[in-house]
């Protein structure tokens, strides 16, 4: 945590959740729980986001939107599935329109359980995501550096 060089920005998208997890995500960003003390900030723009919080399962119509939002985010990126619906489909798993959890369309790194997920659990997920993001950006930097070196030699 101590060596995070820049503040990772959060993008939140409501898949097909019941709103319960959504407002808990928002509540965990307000001063009572204050996830922003870990250096994250909420953004509405996928192109500036590093951590993708998705609530709710994926259905036939929003699968394309979720995929598009994920693709628009720059590398490195981390995906957090918040709530049991985003993890597996939850109580709506048997519904005809639900394809499953968020991991049916995009790779998910961290799963936050709960129905609705409590702010404490969401913050725990965000902190883990920040750590993972730090690790990934280091790897990414090294990769870019070695590629640059390679091109200089050539």
């Amino acid at each position: 945590m101590a060596n995070v060089k820049r503040s990772p920005w959060l993008l939140h998208y409501d898949g097909s959740s019941c709103n319960g997890c959504d407002i808990e995500v928002l509540a965990s960003l307000t001063p009572v729980y204050d996830a922003e003390r870990f250096g994250v900030i909420n953004t509405g723009d996928p192109m500036q986001a590093d951590i993708f919080l998705i609530t709710g399962g994926v259905n036939t119509q929003n699968a394309k939107t979720v995929k598009q939002l994920y693709d628009q985010m720059p590398r490195p990126k981390v995906v957090v599935a918040v709530g049991v619906c985003a993890c597996t489909g939850g109580v709506f798993k048997d519904c005809y329109n639900i394809l499953g959890g968020a991991d049916t369309v995009i790779p998910v790194d961290i799963y936050v359980p709960g129905c609705a997920a409590r702010p404490q659990a969401i913050i725990d997920g965000i902190v883990q995501a920040v750590e993972l993001f730090e690790k990934r950006s280091k790897e990414h930097d090294e990769k870019v550096r070695s590629q640059k070196k390679g091109s200089e030699v050539a």
Binding site: S16, S17, N59, Q61
Partner: peptide, 14 residues
Amino acid sequence: VGFIHRGLESLVDK
């Protein structure tokens, strides 16, 4: 609309 449709009413069968 339709981005969040789950088909909750159909769960009465199950």
